[in-house]
């Protein structure tokens, strides 16, 4: 995970405003909508260029200090990287999982500025040209997806797990995707796919 001292949660509470360098954060506007007295309009400024390394390529992304890595990927990258999904926006469903320096992380809880200097991998970066990665291929073969909205997050969590240990046991696989939620109920096929992908990675030695 990130070694950042300012998480997005803290930032939203106002603590991160310090790091934002003279920018009026959303906390200034966060008072209850029922209180209408102190509602002087505030100007939000302070866009900055953040250099990110995404799937091996450097990219300058224009965003705000409060912009999450998830939002940077989906809305500020060119072209937008929408494979990483916004679902809960709370770090509780894993749909936005990316690998940051090979560790799985919820990109909705990480500020884009905190991803500077780190290698970010998204679901778009796994396939080699048209050849799916072993995890992706196994997901397709085992029908480890239904609506598919949670799928990129699961693929990333399982990829992180198997790249470290292609011999991961079923309990280890379950634990690796314990932070991912699937509403269609695809779990058993995801487990099958992960076990099969691990086997293939052990044999092939490929990532």
């Amino acid at each position: 995970m990130s070694d950042s001292r300012h998480s997005r949660r803290a930032f939203l509470k106002g603590a991160g405003g310090v790091a934002a360098g003279g920018i009026v954060g959303p906390s200034a506007l966060a008072s209850s909508a029922t209180e209408s007295t102190t509602r002087a309009p505030k100007r939000l400024a302070g866009e900055l260029d953040v250099e990110l390394s995404i799937n091996g390529a450097k990219q300058k992304v224009r965003c705000q200090p409060r912009t999450t890595l998830l939002n940077a990927l989906r809305n500020h990258c060119d072209p937008p990287l929408t494979g990483t999904k916004l679902v809960c926006d709370h770090g509780s469903c894993g749909a936005c999982t990316v690998l940051v320096d090979d560790e799985p992380a919820c990109s909705c809880l990480l500020l884009a500025v905190d991803a500077r200097g780190k290698e970010v991998r998204t679901v778009e970066g796994l396939a080699n040209e048209d050849e799916l990665s072993p995890v992706q291929a196994a997901f397709v073969e085992h029908d480890a997806l239904m609506c598919g909205f949670c799928t990129p997050g699961f693929v990333m969590s399982i990829t992180a797990c198997l790249e470290k240990n292609p011999g991961a046991s079923l309990p280890e696989i379950k634990s690796a995707c314990a932070g991912n939620t699937c509403r269609c109920g695809t779990y058993p096929h995801i487990f099958d796919a992960a076990v099969a992908a691990g086997g293939r990675m052990r044999k092939g030695g490929s990532k």
């Binding site: 990483t84 029908d143 693929v155």
Partner: peptide, 21 residues
């Protein structure tokens, strides 16, 4: 039969309403 849109879904290429830009 592995579903035909599996590759699009596992690689992030599948575009949902959320993903339209």
């Amino acid at each position: 039969v592995p579903r035909v849109d599996g590759p699009a879904k596992v690689s992030g290429r599948a575009k949902y309403a959320h993903d339209i830009r």
